[in-house]
């Protein structure tokens, strides 16, 4: 009758063996020759970051381990000892704050991408190329990211203010720019302000209709990269940052719908 209990306790050596086997398999899978740099990447930059990483890895022989998340979440994690060497943030405030607090190497902040805002609808022909659709009664709900949390949301609010629009009751706020896109792509909002990089492919809109908002209507959406304290002793980390400034990297970033 004691068999049941021995099943609970007695299987821990087996578990340990399974754990050891899995850890060994994982260790073998890691390359030993080149340096590995841990990079925290703002989730909205995931697609271009993967393309940049592939190009950099091929050219340098180093390996990049990309982690995707929200910039604010990375800030909390870096304050609490996260091992990231480089941060590609979605804003410029976070890298500045990290430098001021000594969590990033002072003077290493650099703009790696400037975001473009687009008024976008999944429906073809709904948004005209001049944004006149905003002047007429809206065809449905308009989605934008929370202006207090998201740089794209703040830029959206600036555009709305610059155009002198009042959207009482018609605007829906999403937590971040990824959710804003989902609101519109799922048809729950007729149109909304998203990042051009979300709807842009090979030099044009992937689907639907859009108005690429002139940069004069809002403050620039600068995304900054910074060398973190954990990466200060890693030459490969500094090398990746200088690669981001290269013409080759900038052209690649622009092809994803960012300003050069």
């Amino acid at each position: 009758m004691a068999a049941q209990f021995s099943l609970c306790v007695g299987s821990s050596p087996i578990a340990r063996r399974i754990g050891l086997m899995l850890s060994a398999a994982l260790l073998l899978a890691l390359p030993s020759r080149a340096q590995q740099v841990q990079v925290a990447v703002a989730a909205n930059f995931a697609a271009p970051a993967k393309a940049l990483a592939a190009q950099f890895e091929q050219a340098s022989g180093h390996k990049l381990a990309l982690s995707f998340g929200a910039t604010g979440q990375f800030y909390a994690q870096i304050r609490n000892g996260a091992p990231f060497a480089v941060l590609l943030a979605a804003d410029e405030e976070t890298p500045e704050k990290l430098q001021a607090q000594g969590l990033a190497v002072a003077g290493t902040g650099q703009t790696y991408a400037t975001g473009r805002l687009v008024l976008w609808s999944k429906q073809a022909g709904l948004v005209d190329g001049q944004g006149h659709v905003l002047r007429a009664p809206l065809p449905g709900r308009l989605a934008l990211a929370d202006p207090r949390l998201s740089p794209y949301g703040r830029a959206s609010a600036e555009v709305i203010a610059a155009l002198g629009l009042t959207l009482r009751g018609q605007a829906v706020e999403a937590a971040h720019i990824g959710q804003t896109y989902q609101f519109i792509a799922s048809g729950n909002a007729a149109l909304g302000f998203v990042a051009l990089s979300q709807v842009y492919e090979n030099g044009r809109l992937r689907e639907g209709s859009g108005w690429i908002v002139p940069e004069s209507l809002h403050k620039p959406i600068r995304q900054q990269a910074v060398l973190l304290r954990a990466g200060s002793g890693q030459p490969a980390a500094a090398q990746f940052l200088s690669y981001l400034r290269s013409a080759q990297a900038q052209a690649l970033v622009a092809s994803y719908g960012y300003s050069p």
Binding site: A40, A65, F68, G178
Partner: peptide, 19 residues
Amino acid sequence: GNIPGQTRVVSTQIYGHVE
């Protein structure tokens, strides 16, 4: 922290793919 090979599990891997 969603670090590949160390703390990236299936659910956070899916998140990366979606983003």
